[in-house]
Simulated assay, not measured.
Amino acid sequence: MANQIHPLMSFFEGYVRNFRRLNLSSLHNRSMFTSREIDYFARLGEWLGFDAYVEDSKRNDLTGRSRPMDLSWWKWDTRLDKENYVSLSLHLERESLPQKAEDTIEKLFTESAEGYRPDHVIGIQYVNSLSDIDQLNEKILTLNKHQKSQVLMIYRELNRKNQFERIKAFEGNSEGWIEIRSAVALLDPSYYWYMCFEEEWEGKAKSI
């Protein structure tokens, strides 16, 4: 497993490596974190050749209403279709409030028309405790049996007292989870946030 390349986990690795470049400090509010992280993935999608849209509409067939996707990547290829997008390649949701974790998952796996079933989904979700992850991941696997997307879930647990985050990323599909990575987020000496992988974390910080 460790020797295989999993595309969505590569996106997580880039997210960790480049987080300091978002220039998010201890003074920024959670809306700014959301905005800059979504913008990071929007630019990534455009660099990879997709059309990226923020707050893009997606119909929920169970309710008959449309709920916006935080970010979507659409694939355009006139060799296959000269009038319509070939596929919804990515649906991303980013949520700061732990109490909205299940709602975020339901948005990612909404029952919708075939053209709106994403090939890939990414969820960036704060949780009250990393112990909540197992239950949330079970819900994802249940809902993804029908949607059959490739999934990357990034869970973040914030220790406000120490200004420190533990992060767990899970890549999987409709059959189960394929790879797990752990990271941490810390403030540098100038009080800007950066991330590094848990195995790279200096031993002195592990007392937090």
Rank of each mutant, 00 (worst) to 15 (best):
L97T: 13
M69I: 08
L97Q: 12
L158F: 15
S89Y: 15
D61L: 15
D103N: 14
E165A: 02
Y85E: 00
W76A: 12
Q150S: 10
L97N: 13
A113P: 00
K75V: 14
E111V: 14
L62D: 13
L141F: 03
R65K: 14
L152W: 00
Y155P: 06
R65V: 13
D61I: 15
R59T: 14
N159R: 05
K161F: 07
F164L: 09
I124H: 09
R79S: 08
Q135D: 07
L136F: 07
R79G: 08
R156F: 01
A52Q: 04
W74R: 09
S57K: 15
M69R: 15
T110P: 00
L88S: 02
G64H: 09
V151Q: 00
D61Q: 14
S72K: 05
A101G: 02
E106H: 15
E114S: 14
D77A: 11
R117Q: 10
D134Y: 09
S96A: 11
E106K: 15
T104N: 11
R79D: 04
A113Q: 08
I122R: 03
K139P: 01
W74H: 04
R94C: 15
E106V: 12
T104H: 04
P68H: 15
E157A: 08
L71F: 06
R160L: 06
Q99M: 10
L141V: 01
E106I: 14
R65M: 12
R67L: 14
E102N: 15
N137R: 11
L143N: 01
D70H: 02
R67G: 08
T63W: 05
D56I: 06
E111I: 13
K139V: 01
P68M: 14
D134L: 08
M69D: 10
K145P: 01
